[in-house]
Write a protein that binds this DNA or RNA. Structure first.
Lengths: 154, 154
DNA sequence: CTCTGTGCAAACACTTTGCAGCTAA
DNA sequence: TTAGCTGCAAAGTGTTTGCACAGAG
């Protein structure tokens, strides 16, 4: 319980920033938004709306899945979260906004974060920069994870 | 009409390879598969199942959307196509198997190909290579395309 | 007090599945 | 001939929308 409380502090520290972001975007600070954001920021597993819904319900038992869904989309819009690149499955969200990369297992759909310094500053080709505004750039790997490899090795 | 015929030849040249791939995977060569593959290989726009369905129907008016769907998944499995990384929208497919990168507009969902030599050989970090089998590696940009930027400039 | 945000339920879009008949090999 | 493929229809899954009420500012 003690360690949980410590963890809690670490992500609750993000809350003032988040509140500021909301206000800047003209959004109201509601318990639902707080709770969704808090659980997303805490999560390490790129949860789907439904996964988060289950977690948030422990804090706000009456919240609806729709609200979680809407809130997540809102968070993505104001840049407090981002939608992870998948391949047309259910939407997955990411509250970690620091630079990192994703590996996605095509079998179990697990998304694994990794960080590799050289990828921090991927140069955007001039041809792209001339025509488009690049908001997010990432290196994305797809393949088979260790667990699935074992499963299929039989 | 003449130029169309020429274009047609260029992608029909891929057909023998494709047939070989099918046979290698133990798949039958059916008109539907041929047609779906042909239209996908011809397409430059990362079509969804539905987009392809409309095109293929011009060749095989009786094909069903389900078949297009199933065929596309099959193609992805045998490595004759791939599912483009999106962000939880409808599945989008890509028949261009040569190395290239994607820029995706978060507004209009358009996916734009680009090619940048330095991205040809992205090094896979050892930490990843140790645990996972990487099948596809790509640099993925997200942002606002020129058309949408104009729209929102008003 | 006002107007945004929420919860509920229905609508929706896309995908998947089961099965009978068809067809490539 | 016969396994695998297709078309149809139905079910499933996840997401979006409309509306009345609740609650933040």
């Amino acid at each position: 319980m003690k360690s949980q409380k410590k963890k809690l502090r670490s992500y609750t520290e993000k809350m003032p920033d988040f509140k500021a972001k909301c206000r800047a975007a003209g959004l109201r600070i509601t318990p639902q938004r707080m709770a969704v954001y808090q659980e997303l920021a805490k999560s390490k597993e790129h949860p789907s709306a439904d996964m988060l819904y289950r977690k948030v319900r422990k804090i706000l038992p009456n919240i609806s899945l729709d609200t979680v869904n809407r809130t997540l989309l809102t968070l993505a819009e104001i840049g407090a979260a981002c939608i992870v690149e998948g391949s047309g499955d259910v939407k997955r969200f990411d509250g970690q906004l620091n630079n990192h990369q994703h590996f996605r297992c095509i079998k179990c759909k697990r998304i694994i974060d990794f960080y590799h310094k050289p990828f921090d500053n991927i140069p955007v080709p001039k041809s792209i920069n001339k025509k488009f505004v690049v908001l997010r750039k990432t290196v994305y790997f797809e393949g088979i994870c260790n667990l699935c490899a074992e499963k299929y090795a039989s």
